[in-house]
Design a protein around this nucleic acid. Structure first.
Lengths: 100, 100
DNA sequence: TATAAACGTTTAAACTATTAAACATTTAAA
DNA sequence: TTTAAATGTTTAATAGTTTAAACGTTTATA
């Protein structure tokens, strides 16, 4: 595979970890259905506490899967899948190029 | 996003979990460099115990990332990335198709 | 058939991640 | 300038993961 492909794979660890959680996937699903939601709106749709939702939102935001816009006291979250998809595409290209 | 894309994402959880571990990535790297290795050979290259290596091999095998061939008492492990890559490709296609 | 080699599995301990309660911060409104 | 609303952060408990030791299984060989 070579070091280059390994580094791509290593770089994907936080993304894989962010995506491999059903709570976070539920949040993602909510945001595909609603376009934009506040923390309280997300909390009211799930069985998690608000701090737990906040925690998961932070992880998703750190991976660039969500974007957030603050208006007054409220924070509006929405999806930003492009970065994650691009990273996966890069990984696939590298692995296919180097590992077959 | 719709249920279809969510199901694709849900289906990827075990794959993401399998790949988001540095020990397992190290095993993958070893197998790209060596084509085929036994459990003891893998163990001698890492700082893990043999049962731990065996454990990680099992997880990787369950996700179709490795294939195994037994010859006598020895088990020869080698990479089989195709399944995982295909699954990621499917996910990307579905998300791009349904979520933009 | 007895013995050794190559593994896998079970189990208990250490480590890490997840959760909710309590607290802190920031902004808007009275 | 209080007060209330929306949210983030810290912390302690719980749940899940990872590890190595001990044990079991299978296969080859003496």
């Amino acid at each position: 595979m070579g070091e280059q492909a390994l580094e791509k794979l290593r770089a994907c660890i936080p993304l894989f970890q962010a995506l491999s959680d059903t709570c976070r996937q539920d949040i993602i699903l909510l945001l595909t259905k609603n376009d934009t939601l506040t923390v309280n709106e997300i909390t009211s749709e799930l069985t998690l506490s608000r701090p737990a939702v906040s925690h998961h939102l932070k992880i998703l935001r750190e991976q660039g899967i969500l974007k957030m816009e603050q208006q007054g006291t409220q924070r509006y979250y929405s999806l930003a899948f492009e970065n994650a998809i691009d990273q996966l595409k890069q990984l696939i290209i590298t692995v296919e190029d180097r590992c077959y």
